[in-house]
Amino acid sequence: MRRPRSLIPLFFLLPALILLVPFVIYPVLKTIYLSFFLEGKFVGLANYKHVLLSSDIINLDRFPTKSPPWGSLINNVIFIAIHLPSTIFLGLGLALLLKREEVKGSSLIKSIIFLGMVIPMIVGGLITRFLFEKGAGVVPSILGALGIKSLDITWTAFPQTALFAVILGSIWIWTGFSMLMYSAGLASIPRDYYEAALIDGASRFQIFRNVTWPLLKPITIVVVAMTLLWDLKIFDVVYVATGGGPGGASMVLALQMWDYFARELNYNYAAVVAVLLTTLTLIPAMWLIRRRE
């Protein structure tokens, strides 16, 4: 016999739905709707064709043989390719290093590293900009002192280095998150497992490979998904540090959307990028939800 469906869960969902419908669902649907129109006329997929074929999004004339700009989508991919593994391994490394009791002041060090996550992203962008400014910034000064004169420049002013400046700045900002997540994960692993492994004669590397890393898998999934989402949505840091320049060399999708929207006042093209961006971010988000289920 089929059990009658209860309306009670729906009732409890009602307050959330009342907020979600006008503030999330309607704007999402309206954005999708706008992406098919131009100057008030239905144009089908023409806007998508225009945006995707634009050299602002993918510049195959220059990528990969010539210097940037390579297009915002390619820049986002490069961003992910460098930022994602860097923050994961740095975060994990720092969490492992600072877990050990013999490290004095580990809480203070963790707090300092986590500072990047606490400050507003706009401030993070400004710090990034000045970190890589010739004369004022630490990075060009150190590289200059080491004799690498070609990198003793204002990184954000040159197309070859602007994107990397933003990525490195973002690694500093985001590593705190990764480290904190791994620290929490490490704290949840029972000590018995390590003691048993030591009694069995396992080396430090074997313990890490066979005990720590597998048990940190759920944490890694969260860190990977969250970092991917952050990388795809990256906006503030780029906006402040480089404005997407010079010559579009550090342009990313979210900033491209903003430019269409705020500079060109072309809400239809902005909607196309928004839809693309949402689709791309949905992939890791769905993956995360499924893995957690």
Binding site: S67, A157, F158, P159, G243, G244, G245, P246, G247, G248, A249, D259, Y260, R263, E264, L265, N266
Partner: peptide, 25 residues
């Protein structure tokens, strides 16, 4: 004005550090 204004600024930044790219700019 508009998007072109930002493009102008941005392209000149590029020209300033890579004057060889005048044609592209």
């Amino acid at each position: 004005g508009g998007e072109w204004q930002k493009t102008f600024w941005d392209q000149l930044k590029l020209l300033w550090v890579q004057p060889d790219r005048l044609n592209d700019v």
